[in-house]
Design a protein around this nucleic acid. Sequence first.
DNA 1: GTGGTCTAGACCACC
DNA 2: GTGGTCTAGACCACT
Lengths: 130, 130, 130, 130
Amino acid sequence: MIPILSLNHRDARPLHQQVSQGLRQLIVKSALKPDDKLPGVRELASTLAINPNTIARAYRDLEAEGYVHSIAGKGTFVSPREDIGQQRREGLLSQWERVTAELLYLGAGVEELCEKVRAMPAAAQEGGVV
Amino acid sequence: MIPILSLNHRDARPLHQQVSQGLRQLIVKSALKPDDKLPGVRELASTLAINPNTIARAYRDLEAEGYVHSIAGKGTFVSPREDIGQQRREGLLSQWERVTAELLYLGAGVEELCEKVRAMPAAAQEGGVV
Amino acid sequence: MIPILSLNHRDARPLHQQVSQGLRQLIVKSALKPDDKLPGVRELASTLAINPNTIARAYRDLEAEGYVHSIAGKGTFVSPREDIGQQRREGLLSQWERVTAELLYLGAGVEELCEKVRAMPAAAQEGGVV
Amino acid sequence: MIPILSLNHRDARPLHQQVSQGLRQLIVKSALKPDDKLPGVRELASTLAINPNTIARAYRDLEAEGYVHSIAGKGTFVSPREDIGQQRREGLLSQWERVTAELLYLGAGVEELCEKVRAMPAAAQEGGVV
DNA sequence: GTGGTCTAGACCACC
DNA sequence: GTGGTCTAGACCACT
């Protein structure tokens, strides 16, 4: 029982998106590493007390992005970083540029943001890249 | 022919959101400066070939965020930076942290991102004040 | 037959505002408590004999203020007090000061108003917790 | 040149409402006392650099409420408090109760509000009631 | 001519 | 069945 997800039933976003984003963050922060097995659809569904269809939808979306891959009869596993689609990379980058530009407009300092970037990967790399 | 927005009808995001985001970016990049007048609701609607109500919704949302202010009978105008609500600032920052973490995981270099940040405000200020 | 709202079609204020204000008052007076479900958009619309879009607009505005939160596919629910934005608090206070000053000018007694204030929360709490 | 009004051209409210509210506040705070003459329509219009029709509309609304009275050929004058319509009194009181209830719900203290009420009339009464 | 409101009716995603 | 989106078209108030 490695992965812990918290659902916010008062969040406007659909549940399947909350699930997929939560798992994505666990992967990104290396709490789930390549080849780790995700909990089964029914198992996770009962843990979170929601419909299995919702979990399945989340897994399907993550698979389309390249974050995980399913093997029939065995389960769903974290994929290596290299499998993540270029499409997602590009989308993320343009989103990042939009958000960063807005933050700067709103008065965030250039160095302030840079420091935040530098402080971030420490945690991720710990358990990530050897 | 001041503001150019491109809509993608195949995009999953609602049209009104694409419109508001596009305008927000124009403001953030100083292509639209405080007190500038936005195109009229009907005018922009016919330019983009969508319903005026959709534009009105976008304007209303931007107004709630503090990016613009509408005056019945006169038009919709860009507001000064200071009017933008604290709520939006906070939401943006957490979004930025999520996206940045994911980009780093996907192989983006810390210095690469920092350089992008540094290069950004230059462009914004250039396009603005000349 | 939980929530009762009365609309005045001769009132100068727009319908969606009458609806949102009415619901806000029900929340403030604890007739609707956190996590309570508001009537569905179509349901309330047919009860009040107005268009569902108008109700949706009211719900959306209340959501922006933090009074309620909507979940697609489930419904609209009362949010906890803490979710209400600081912006609204500030606006209310300045409005309260204007109105109070005018009432005092019109002959309302200081102690008379104070007594009203003191008498108020009692009613709210009584109707709430029993 | 007694009365000073500041218009906010970025305010969403129509100009005539800003004018009438501004004048009402001046009366309420005894900056304008009964029988004082308001500036002429054209005079105030040129002072504020707006259309005379807008001023005329504001004066007309204030007259309907009983705050002022116009004498053809002479001008517009502040009326005694007694002339202010019962209708407005009632409207104000119900508005005050709504706003007060909401402030209490949002955490304002009973005594905090009472103190504000007590601190208020000091300024008003100075030049007001003998 | 401007934004704001309201109606009527349709379609979609979510659960 | 829920809320969300979008369209089409009408009317109003403000400047």
